[in-house]
Structure formats: structure tokens, C-alpha cells
């Protein structure tokens, strides 16, 4: 079964992935995805009826702790990495028109 990725699907995935692919890159992404999905489709040869999806190999449970700060104030160090800051905030482009 050969997968075909439509322009609409490619646009939609681009929105989910927050990626802007143009021209050549977009066509390469389409071909790559079609090939990979064809390859992944080999999984359909396997009968997985009644098999539970396994997200973790060992039984893991949520780990809780008391809500107490232990790592001190890292404000300045954290903000030092900001591409753009305004006083004690991360600055982003205007979000509301």
C-alpha cells in the first residue's frame, strides 16, 4: 500500500509541528513521510488484536513529593538564557492584535 500525503495533510502536520517548510524542503518531507509510512505499514502484517498498548516496560507509578522548594532562586540564571527579556520577564512578540 503506497501512502500519499496530500497538500492539506502536509499543511496540517506543519501546523502541529510548528514548522514552516518551503519549496524543496516541503517536497522532501512529503517523500520522506510517504516512504516511512509505507515502511511502518509492515506492522499491519502483525495481528495485535487484544494486545494492550505498552507505553512503559516496567510498571511505573507517579512519584509524589511534598510541594516544597529545594532548589533556591534561579531567576537571574534562568532569564540570562532568554533570547529577549524585559526586566524580569521573557519578552515575546505581541500576541493579541
Amino acid at each position: 500500500m503506497a501512502n500519499k500525503i496530500s497538500d492539506e495533510t502536509l499543511d496540517y502536520v506543519g501546523i502541529l509541528a510548528k514548522l514552516e517548510l518551503s519549496g524543496e524542503e516541503r517536497e522532501a518531507a512529503r517523500t520522506d513521510m510517504e516512504k516511512m509510512l509505507d515502511y511502518i505499514d509492515t506492522l499491519n502484517e502483525l495481528d495485535t488484536t487484544g494486545v494492550e498498548p505498552m507505553s512503559h516496560v516496567f510498571p511505573v507509578n507517579n512519584v509524589f513529593r511534598e510541594d516544597v522548594v529545594t532548589n533556591g532562586d534561579g531567576r537571574e540564571e534562568t532569564l540570562a538564557n532568554a533570547p529577549q527579556r524585559k526586566e524580569d520577564s521573557f519578552e515575546v512578540p505581541k500576541t493579541i492584535g
Binding site: T9, Y12, L16, D32
Partner: peptide, 30 residues
């Protein structure tokens, strides 16, 4: 990295989640 983000976003998107992502997790169990 873009290739894998695109593929990952696709297999997690509604309509494909069961067919791809859950199928892979079932295969993992096997």
C-alpha cells in the same frame, strides 16, 4: 530532526493515532 518531528506529529494526530502510534505500542508489547 524536522523529518522526525513531522513524522511524530503525523502519527500522533487525530485519525492516525490508533493506526500508527497505538499499533506501534502494541507491537512493542509483543
Amino acid at each position: 530532526v524536522k523529518r522526525r518531528i513531522m513524522l511524530g506529529s503525523f502519527v500522533l494526530s487525530s485519525g492516525y493515532y490508533d493506526a500508527y502510534y497505538l499499533k506501534a505500542l502494541r507491537t512493542k508489547a509483543l
